[in-house]
């Protein structure tokens, strides 16, 4: 065991897999000698060799296309898209190719690739370094979409993603790379060091994709969240003073629908929290599932706490970011009904 922040945990996952499987290799913009703009691939080139962790041309479509070709041959490429905001040139490759290769070739060719990408807001990154595009991947059948919320989960889930025989989008909430940000932006930064989930095994382990974590048990309302919003939701629950059950989905595809249904049937209320814009966001799918499967147990309409339906605005970071106050307000609202 070692104390790791999320960057170190992800680096450890990559290091572990490079050492363990010669078919694993890494490429992406600035990931080689420099070690990535967020340092997730720090020292991996030096340790494992130039041809196992190297810089890619600035061509996200090309990065993913090349990874798919390697994956079809049998390698397990792990590629980095520097910011999730820049993944869109690769969208055709992900949607039309990676997601369907197994289906259309009847399994003759597959794409066992992992696409890592830092995502989300809270860093004053403006509209092109802050977005949360998970819903556009969740909508595509054939792609798995994983979002960790702690260092321990980050390592275990990334190893599971690399070992997965299907393509995985692995979104890293960059606001919590260095500490568990709870949305109280006026306060001093907290490091991971004191968090129990910063205790990370140095060896290989994996966390099954599609298994949610119950972060906090409660009786009165179920809160569904992932990524940074797990920590924000905890703060909102504390502010609201309600006995909420907080579920960290950890992956949105595959989705642990059983955990969601069991909890909502117990509590009878549901609040969904994500950073992405509300309209057409993944919260809509969660809300529909809850309504379809728990309707007769519900005591109040499900609420969504989400980013506003605007681009991510630089000056208005904290007006846009759905902080604990908005979570607490939604919790109070469902409890009133």
């Amino acid at each position: 065991m070692a104390v790791m922040n999320m960057i170190q945990a992800l680096n450890s996952a990559l290091d572990t897999m490079l050492a363990r499987d010669p078919d694993v290799l890494i490429f992406g913009e600035d990931v080689g000698y420099f070690g990535g703009v967020f340092r997730v691939t720090d020292k991996l080139q030096e340790k494992h060799g130039l041809d196992r962790c190297f810089d890619a041309p600035i061509a996200e479509g090309g990065i993913v296309a090349t990874a798919i070709g390697m994956g079809a041959e049998g390698l397990r490429p792990v590629v980095e898209i520097q910011f999730a905001d820049y993944i869109l040139p690769a969208y055709d490759q992900l949607v039309s190719e990676a997601a369907r290769l197994r289906y259309r070739s009847n399994g003759e060719f597959t794409a066992p690739i992992t696409v890592r990408s830092p995502y989300g807001g809270g860093i004053f990154g403006g509209q092109t370094h802050s977005q949360s595009p998970e819903a556009i991947f969740a909508h595509i059948t054939g792609l798995k979409t994983v979002i960790p919320s702690t260092p321990y989960d980050a390592k275990g889930l990334l190893i599971a993603a690399i070992e997965c025989d299907d393509p995985v989008i692995f979104l890293e909430p960059k606001r919590i790379y260095n500490g568990p940000f709870d949305g109280r932006h006026g306060q001093a930064l907290t490091s991971w060091a004191q968090h129990p989930a910063a205790q990370v095994p140095e060896d290989h382990y994996s966390i099954a994709l599609g298994k949610a974590a119950i972060v906090r048990e409660g009786a009165d309302v179920t809160v569904l969240a992932y990524g940074t919003m797990v920590h924000v939701a905890l703060a909102g629950i504390a502010d609201a003073g309600v006995d909420a059950e907080l579920i960290d989905l950890r992956s949105i595809v595959p989705l642990d629908v059983d955990a969601i249904v069991a909890s909502v049937k117990k509590t009878g209320r549901c609040v969904i929290v994500h950073e992405a814009s509300r309209f057409g966001g993944f919260g809509g799918e969660l809300s529909a599932l809850v309504t379809e499967r728990c309707f007769y147990h519900l005591k109040a309409p499900t609420q969504r706490v989400a980013g506003w339906d605007t681009p991510y605005p630089h000056a208005f970071e904290w007006d846009y970011f759905p902080g604990p106050d908005r979570v607490a307000k939604a919790l109070a609202h469902v409890m009133e009904v």
Binding site: G126, Q127, P313, H314, A315
Partner: peptide
């Protein structure tokens, strides 16, 4: 990104 920003605070510096 201040009150006189011609781009109304919406864009990165």
């Amino acid at each position: 990104s201040n009150a006189q920003d011609p781009l109304k605070g919406r864009q990165l510096p």
